[in-house]
Design a binder for these strands. Structure first.
Lengths: 231, 231
DNA sequence: CAATAAATTAGACAGTTGGGTAATGGATTA
DNA sequence: TAATCCATTACCCAACTGTCTAATTTATTG
């Protein structure tokens, strides 16, 4: 039952990898895990960003494994500098955190993949292969979060399609404002204060939002709004 | 520590897949390519979105392969409706185009992966495996484009951060159950009825959920849960 | 101009929510 | 065994929610 799925075992030269990681033990672990694969070759290792950048410049590796929590220059800065050097090395960001801003920052600063450190070593090899071909790969723990950070686009009429508009919700502009505050968890009183109207007004808006969205309470409205990218 | 080699070859039941694709020939191709793998099982196929949604509702598959260019209701609408049904099926968007808006629209509408149709069949199987575990996988042809669409964040001083791991939420199993009901908009009374406990219990759980998630009310909890993919 | 829709305000009311505090039994762990 | 954590129940209370009815003002549109 074990035959097909190695998409990478071709005859071409192995994927060259550089590891930038401050913990010696993790470094060794990464090297061993990756070098166990015939098609992957760890060509160098660095324990800080400065050294890492030098090695990257020298070796021009296919893939860079970059720890984000480095002493001195952090991994994200390092990635930016790396991209400025203009090789087409692909970068895998590696951390143990799953903070939203960090994930986004890494991915917008040059990383093609984001892995948490507890990834299975064999899986990591797969990711290295994927990323070397240009794939964007994001760890399950942060995937949803990342996808939710993408800008919402009005899907209606995106594809040659007509019949759809009926399901849509025709909220007024004011109601949209209210909805945004509602989604951010504000109470009617807070919404009223924010929009400089009376609580009665805020309540009235919320009420008509609920009816237009066909839901029973503000929680459902908020969830629906988030899920459908209305906000 | 870990003897697994191929992340998929375990003894657990195969990954169930539903294919929604209008071209018969492509459908056959997809089915054959996937069914060639012991750990993947194509349980149904549909040639349009309406039929697809019915099948999805019936089978609750692990993974859905969704063509975006369907006649009638398009794939993106179908994904939205699919997400509304609230199973945790993962969706792979499949098209032959690489239009930016379409990619983003797909990923924000519920897709966990975006594949172009000329993908290697074995690679597709890998993607199915990855996606079934929650990975976000984006085809090389559109990966860079997608990453560029992420909101830019000011990286300065992003990382000097260690104390943050506390932000993570260690909800108990019971609390997770309650959270799910909460997200679906149920009141404490309804949650209590659902879990066959008293309202007091439900309230207690909700209360500790709010504290653990560091939010002030159930709306914020629901939104956070949805945004971070906790449910 | 008249009709329609949106935004605003108000009072009232039953029901829900979230915070405290406190007690009990069961399970796991030190 | 003792200490902890979890699930469960209970009561109180201030605050908030959602619905109703009803009225005024401003735009927009036929």
């Amino acid at each position: 039952m074990n035959m097909v799925q190695k998409t990478a075992e071709t005859q071409t030269k192995p994927i060259s990898v550089i590891i930038v990681e401050d913990f010696k033990l993790t470094r060794v672990g990464l090297r061993c895990a990756l070098n166990a694969n015939d098609d992957i070759n760890v060509v160098a290792e660095a324990e800080d960003a400065v050294e890492g950048l030098k090695l990257i410049e020298r070796h021009k590796p296919d893939v860079i494994l970059m720890d984000l929590g480095l002493p001195g220059m952090n991994g994200i800065e390092a990635m930016v500098k790396c991209k400025e050097m203009n090789f087409d090395s692909k970068i895998i960001a590696l951390t143990s955190h799953d903070r939203c801003e960090e994930v986004i920052a890494a991915l917008t600063s040059g990383a093609s993949a984001y892995c948490l450190k507890d990834i299975d070593p064999n899986k990591l090899a797969d990711v290295v292969r994927d990323v070397s071909t240009g794939v964007c790969w994001i760890d399950p723990m942060v995937a949803q979060m990342t996808l939710n950070s993408l800008p919402k686009i009005d899907n209606a009429g995106l594809l040659p399609n007509k019949s759809n508009n009926e399901g849509r919700v025709p909220l007024t502009e004011r109601e949209f404002e209210v909805l945004k505050h509602l989604v951010s968890g504000k109470s009617n009183t807070e919404i009223a204060k924010e929009l400089i109207v009376s609580v009665h007004t805020a309540k009235a808006h919320v009420c008509s939002i609920l009816q237009k969205m066909c839901v029973n309470d503000r929680v459902q409205a908020a969830v629906k709004a988030v899920k459908e990218g209305m906000v």
